[in-house]
Structure formats: structure tokens, C-alpha cells
Write a protein that binds this DNA or RNA. Structure first.
Lengths: 211, 211, 211, 211
DNA sequence: TATGAATGAGGGTTCATTCAT
DNA sequence: TATGAATGAACCCTCATTCAT
């Protein structure tokens, strides 16, 4: 077999492996989201991924390792935060609009994966720590810096920064939760959520002349 | 045996039964909160409640029925919402302070029970519906009415009422979530949460002259 | 229910439990002896013991714990070594005859249990240590003392005592092994084994005038 | 390609194949000896032999076939029994010394292989028969003939020949067993075993003048 | 012939639930 | 009504074996 043929075959094998891994993680996310981690069976995931039960264990150490795999994929979706850097320069309100739009969009994209891991995050210590570090803390730190900078420049009202940041984050986590609960007004009005969020958090409910 | 003696003995038996039921639900909440519903075993709950495994089935139909029991107890804690009625009459900002204080207090009170049921609420359809009806929808309706009334009177800025209400509720749900995650700034600053919440949601982050 | 009735019922339950445990250990020994530890299934043992699979786990922590249980029972059979004490007083040759008879008898009694555990003893570290301590070392120590005493009194030829003792013990272990191998001459001549053993080990093969 | 080149290449290939087979059997013996047949995995053996899992199946039909392979290699070690032929001519006691020395030496040489197969010999019928035929019966027959001849000539005390032979063989099997058990006195005194064995079996423990 | 990923049968174990006492 | 041992269905995971490359 010529070198190029070998290379081709090697890369094909590699590609097949990648595809299989994706199929498995997709299947796991789907089944976990629908039935919950504990009621989901490896067999069901394997069938949906169109592989044998045992094959799954070539891609993960055990069942709960699939959750880690899903979380990692979710993190990959998050990497593209560069776009916000620009918005940080402009008006504070514009930044909030951009930031909230982004988060809200991410939630929809990752809905299935989030639904798959969130219940277990609340229960599984390892997963919990990982989720906290990777999702909560990383974003919190960034947002805290931004807030402090804006407060110094008088563009934002002085507040307890760590708490305020937590509250905004809580709102996003809670929105995921409410979507999973199946709240109808939220689903049908999802497109308006970012704008309303800004009104709520930036403008405030108080009917001052502002804006 | 005299009537009175019988009554006394019956009522004593009744009391013992109630106590036992409470011990079982307490134990279930504790174990579920610590290990999660699925990793918790009836045996462990029985031991903590100091009864035999089989006894538990005299107080509930099956394991997941314990979650219903816990949810019902949680609801009992919620009944005392009367106190808010007064605050609804006064200044809008004062109402928010009062309302948020109350919710934040409830969260601490019910922490263990919440931690016990929340992960399953995300996963168990029956529980989910019940939780949504009893906690989300009931409060949402009340809060929507209040908001609409205040908007009409010009005391609150016009907003998409259903969405705004969902966001505030999401924030509370998210705060429970963040506490379970073990976020330190939130735990240590918990006493200041209501005030900061009002600043955020009522005043807004925008540095308007007001207040 | 009267006290005596209660006592009776309690003791009956106790008795049933003991019986069940014995049935399980018997079944385990039989199946292990026939198929070997690893090819034996819990299900097969359970069926032979006439209990459900799960019931077995009320009597042992896991499959290999059954081996420990069998070894313990085997040890109980060994306790009755008192009878040898007398023989230790008399002629050395008579003691050997008595001792060998006893060991040879024990081997037959415990054949199935021995066949069940021996292969695993060679492979399972925990079991190995236990077997070595309980069977080899305990008997070795006793026998060494006897030998030394007799050598001092000139009743037995001076030899390397620890080694000699190991050799005699090896012979017994080896005889078990040979029986498991199914050697026909050994099986059919088993009754003559003790006498031949004494000829071999005490008299020696050398055709000295003696005896 | 010239004939010689072909030959050379063929023979090289042959040699590589032999080496590989040896590596595989060595690895199997090592892993079986350490973990036991059932807990050993093909994968682990393959790694130790530095080949792929699948390659092993080019050298054996299945896992238990490796045991046969090991037994066969062990048998090769045994072939060199010619040296004993001379000793059979001389003094009976000298023969015993020579014979026992040889066996004891073989045990050390083959320790790992013996430890690998013995537990399975007790459990696997096919292996058992083979081991019995090849090791026990062949040696037994030879030894029986020798014994009978010596008894006829009055050089050895009349005994039940088949039984006596079994006992001596049992002793060797048992010594292997004791070594696997890790008995310390035996390990450290191993060099003196043949001499003590002769004292025990030929001279007898009885303190008659002889020798 | 070597490779190593895919396969899937098989089994130990758990634990919610039942029920005789 | 309380007990707690018995039950057996269910499921994760292992690993010998196969086979496309």
C-alpha cells in the first residue's frame, strides 16, 4: 500500500472514530435529556448511536463519564466569546444587550446538553465542581471586571459587584431551568427575552425618566 | 376499656404516626439532598428515620412518592404569604424589598428540601408538572397582577409583564441553584442579597440620578 | 402473642436463617467444586440452594466471600483435634498412625470444600494468606513441637524439623491434589494410605531389620 | 529474488514467528502466575508480549489454549530425564538423592509455569487429564518399575508400590503448592530439601541404627 | 500476517418492593 | 401496624473473540 493510500486510510479511520464519538455523545445527550441520567440505559444510548453497548466503553470510562464528555462539548460551544470584546468598548447598555443576546442564544443551542447535565450537576460532586469552575466562575470573573471598570467610570451605579454578578448569572441558570420546566410564555416569548432582560436589569423597573 | 381511655390511646397512636411520618420525610429530604434521589436507598432513609424498611411503605406508595411528600411539606411553608398583602399597598420599592426578603428567607428555610427535589423536578414529569403549577405558576400569576396594576398607575415602567415575571422567578430559582453549587460569595453575602436584588431589578444598574 | 410463642417464633426464624446459610454454603461448595470458582454463577448456586439470587447477598458480601464462608466451615471440622493429645503420649509410631488416619479422614470429609477452595487459594491473595495461617501454619507449629520433643528423647532421628514438617504437610496437600486429579490407585487404595504413609515416613523405605 | 534470498527471508520470518510465540507464552505464564487464569486478560498478555490483542489468536485457538501451550513447554523441560538412568544402577539411596535433586530443581525452573497452570489443572477437565497423563502417570510408571525391581532385590522394604509412589509424587506436588503459598521456611531452606526428603522417605524418621 | 476497534453475550450486584410473622 | 428477610428484575461493565484494513 502506498504512503498516500495509507495516510488516507489512517485519516479515514480517524474520521470514523471522531464521527462515532460524536454520535455517542449526541445520543447520550438526547437520552439523558429525555429520561434523566439514571433512567437512561447504556443500551438505549448505544442503539440511538447505532453502535454496540460495549463500543461505548471505547470512548468513555463509564456511564457518568459521558456527562463529562457532554460538558466538554458544551464548553467548546462557549469558546467564541471574542465577539463580546468589541461591545465592551461601547455604551454600557449596548454591551448588556449584546451580552444577553449571546447568552440567550447559547442556551437555545445547548438546550439538550444542558438538560442532560444540569440535574446531575446538582447531585454529582465531581460534575458540580467542574461545572462551577468552567461555567460559573469563569464568566463571573469576566463580568465582575467589566462591572467594576464601568462603575469607576460612573457608567454604572455602585453596587455589590460579586453579588450583582451572581444574580445575573442566576437569572440565566434559572431561565434554563424554566425552559426545562416547559413554561409556555417563556418559550413563545424567547426572542424578546434579551431586550426585556436589559430593561429589567439595566434600566430597572422604576419608572424614572431615564433612557 | 373506657371511651376516654380509648380516645386517648387512639390519639396517642395518631400522634405517633404523625411523628413517624415527619421523621420519614425529614430523613428522605436529608438523604436525597446529600446523595440525590437515585443514589439514595430506602434502607438508608429508614435507618435515619429509625424505622424498618417496610414501614416506609405504610406512609408512601413508592420511593418517588417521598418526593411528593417533601414537596407538599415545602408548600406548607409557603402558605404564610399573607404578610405581603400589606406591603402591596405601599410604595412599589418597599414591596420589592419585602417580597425579595421573604423569598430569600424561604430559600434558606427550605434549602434541604429544595436540594432534594430540584434535580428530580428537572427529570420526573409528574413532579415537574406539580412543581410548575404549585411554585411557578401560582406566584407568577400573583406577581403579574401586581405588576400590571402598578404599571397602570405609572408606578412601574411598562414592560413585557409575563416575561419580566419569569425573569425574576428565574433569578430565585437560579439563586437556589447557585447555593447548591456552593458558590462562596453568595453564601457569605446572603444577607445582602435582597437589597442588591432590589437595586438591580427595581433601580437598575444604569446610573440615573434617582434614589 | 405470648412470650413463649414469641420466643419460639424468634428461634424458628433463627433456625431457618441458619439452615438457609448452610444450604447456600453447601450449594456454593458443590458448584465451585464442580465448575471452579470463576465458571460457577451465583444463579446456579442460588438454584441449587433453592433461594433467589439476591438472597445470597444477605449471607455474604460478594461471590468470593462464599469461599471464605466455605473455608470457615472447613475449619470447624478441624477443631476436634483433641483426640490426638492422647496419642502424643504413647509410642511415636502409634502417634503417626493416629495422626495420619485423622488427616486422611478429614480429607475425605472435606473433599468437596477443599476442591472448591484450593484452586482459588493458589490465586487469591486474601484467601491464600488465610489458608496458610489457618491450615498450614497452625498444624506446622504443633507438629514441630512434637517432633522436637521426640528427637530430644531419642525417639525420632534428628532431622531439619521445619523442613521435615513441611514435607509431611506437602504430602497431605499433594494427596488432596491427586484425589482431585482423579488418580484411580489412590482412590481405590485410600483405606491403606495411612498405613503406607507411616511405613514410608516413619519406617523409611530402606530395608532395615527393624519393625 | 534468488532462492537463497528467499530461503533466508523465509527462515528469518520463521525465526521471528518462533520468537513471537515464545514471547506470547512467556507473557501468558507470567500474567497467569500473577493474577490467575481468569483474572488475566488477553490484552494484558498482549501488552507484555508487545503484540496486538488479535495477534495472539494467530498462535492459539483461544485463551485456554495458552495453558496447553505453557504445559507443553513445561514438558520440554522435563525431557532430559536421561541422567537418571545411570543413578538407577547404583545404590538405592544414591538414586533417591539424585532423583529428588532433579525434581526439586525442576520445580524451581518451572515455578512460574507451574503456578500458571496448577490452579486451572484443578478445574479444567481437559487440562486435568493432560496433566495427569503427562506428569503424574508417566513418572509414576517409571518409579513403580524401579521400586518393584529394588524390592525384589531386597534393596527396598516391601510396600504397597502404587500407593507409595503416589505419596512421593504427592509430596512434590504439595511442595509446589507450599512454595506458591509463600511458606518462608521452605523457601529459605530449599537447598536442603532433597537431603531431608531422602532422610524422611528412605531412612525414615524412626531412629534405627541404620546409615 | 499484524493490528486494534467493534462486538455482544454474560454475570455480579443492587435495591425497591412484598409479605409472612 | 411494624418488621426485615426474600425476591428477582434490571443494568453496568468486562473482555474473549472477530474481522476489516
Amino acid at each position: 500500500m502506498s504512503d498516500s493510500a495509507q495516510n488516507r486510510s489512517v485519516s479515514r479511520r480517524e474520521r470514523l472514530k471522531r464521527e462515532r464519538e460524536e454520535r455517542i455523545l449526541d445520543a447520550a445527550a438526547a437520552v439523558f435529556a429525555q429520561k434523566g441520567f439514571h433512567k437512561a440505559t447504556i443500551h438505549e444510548i448505544a442503539q440511538l448511536a447505532d453502535v454496540a453497548d460495549g463500543t461505548i466503553y471505547n470512548y468513555c470510562a463509564d456511564k457518568s463519564d459521558l456527562l463529562i464528555g457532554i460538558m466538554t462539548r458544551l464548553a467548546e460551544v462557549e469558546q467564541l466569546t471574542g465577539e463580546l470584546a468589541q461591545a465592551m468598548q461601547g455604551e454600557a447598555r449596548d454591551f448588556f444587550v449584546a451580552a444577553f443576546r449571546q447568552r440567550i442564544g447559547r442556551i437555545v443551542q445547548g438546550q439538550e446538553m444542558l438538560q442532560a447535565i444540569l440535574p446531575e450537576v446538582l447531585v454529582n460532586h465531581k460534575l458540580r465542581r467542574r461545572f462551577y469552575q468552567e461555567y460559573v466562575l469563569r464568566l463571573a470573573t469576566m463580568f465582575e471586571q467589566y462591572l467594576r471598570a464601568q462603575i469607576e467610570r460612573g457608567r454604572i451605579r455602585p453596587v455589590n459587584v460579586p453579588l450583582a454578578v451572581r444574580m445575573v448569572q442566576s437569572m440565566f441558570v434559572g431561565l434554563i431551568f424554566m425552559r426545562i420546566l416547559g413554561d409556555e410564555p417563556l418559550r413563545s416569548g424567547w426572542a424578546d427575552v434579551p431586550e426585556t432582560l436589559v430593561t429589567l436589569v439595566f434600566d430597572g423597573l422604576s419608572p424614572k425618566e431615564g433612557r
